[in-house]
């Protein structure tokens, strides 16, 4: 029996599944917005702003979900400062500690960019605030926020690998898998929400990078299964969870959306919508299976 089977489950369940999903979308949305801000064209602005608008509420909801998951929620601030002295607490070797700071920093950048975007469209009385998204300041905020976004999207998988639990700690690939899935689900949500206000060029590009992320995700998912070894795969995934992974993630969440991206007329006008909805569903099921299949051992 592999050594990881002598351990106890931490009961990271529905709060955490929703956090992994929503936090991933938040981080991915900002990362995409930052890419378009830095390398895109002026007509991409609606999608850039939408990326910020998705990122900020996502990270706020993430913080609430994470706090609710604690068995002592009123002590949530112990993640950031020492409980008695209030001196900042940071352990660079603990994914949970680094993650807490990453989420906090990401929240700050998402807030700044959201304020900038609101000022840009005249929804805030202080138009000067639109400088947060312009020039060097905008570049710095988007670079830093984009890096934090990628971090939030991927660290959750690293956190699972830095345990001793079956499946999670039997592969170093979960961080990469969650990062790719966060990117694809974020692109899908941007496509879904932004389809009315964005230019066709932006949507075209989103659909392209979504396809790329899905292809990479499929390859990495295969590598995850191969890397955990036959004993772990048999014990953890040769059951209903494995079926859900195949049907819900591989088929419905990756292959069908790829087909719809490739042949957009297959379902008529509903194709892009259907593809995006399926990518979101697949991303959610991926987290359900990755968490609950190991919890069940």
């Amino acid at each position: 029996m592999p050594d990881t089977f002598f351990t106890e489950a931490p009961h990271w369940q529905w709060w955490i599944i929703w956090y992994f999903f929503i936090g991933g979308i938040g981080g991915g949305s900002y990362a995409i917005a930052a890419l378009l801000h830095i390398f895109g064209e002026p007509e991409d602005r609606p999608i850039v702003r939408l990326g910020y608008y998705i990122a900020l509420p996502s990270i706020i909801v993430s913080g609430i979900l994470l706090t609710l998951d604690l068995t002592r929620p009123e002590r949530f601030y112990h993640m950031l400062v020492q409980s008695k002295t209030f001196v900042p607490a940071f352990k660079y070797w603990s994914p949970m500690s680094v993650g807490s700071w990453g989420i906090t920093l990401f929240g700050l950048f998402a807030f700044l960019s959201t304020v900038g975007a609101l000022a840009e469209t005249g929804r805030l009385p202080w138009s000067g605030l639109s400088r947060l998204n312009q020039g060097t300041l905008g570049l710095v905020i988007n670079l830093a926020g984009g890096l934090c976004g990628f971090f939030v999207a991927g660290y959750t998988g690293v956190l699972l690998s830095v345990t001793n639990r079956p499946l999670w700690s039997d592969t170093p690939l979960l961080g990469l898998l969650f990062l790719l899935s966060a990117f694809s689900t974020a692109a899908a949500l941007l496509l879904l929400v932004g389809r009315r206000r964005a230019q066709p060029e932006s949507l075209e590009w989103l659909s392209q990078i979504d396809s790329w992320a899905l292809i990479l995700e499929l390859v990495v998912l295969g590598a995850v299964i191969l890397s955990v070894g036959t004993v772990v795969a048999r014990e953890v995934l040769f059951n209903a969870w494995g079926v859900l992974l195949l049907v819900g993630v591989v088929l419905a969440g990756i292959l069908v959306p790829l087909l719809l991206h490739w042949r957009p007329r297959l379902l008529g006008a509903a194709s892009p919508l259907g593809a995006a909805a399926l990518v979101l569903l697949g991303g959610f099921i991926l987290r359900v299976v990755m968490l609950l299949s190991s919890e069940a051992v």
């Binding site: 050594d3 002598f6 351990t7 106890e8 931490p10 604690l70 002590r75 830095v162 345990t163 999670w168």
Partner: peptide
């Protein structure tokens, strides 16, 4: 008095003690 119940230690223990 410091622990906030994040449960990272539970999954980290190689012996399933905590």
């Amino acid at each position: 008095d410091v622990c906030n119940g994040c449960r990272a230690c539970i999954s980290a223990c190689p012996f399933g003690v905590i």
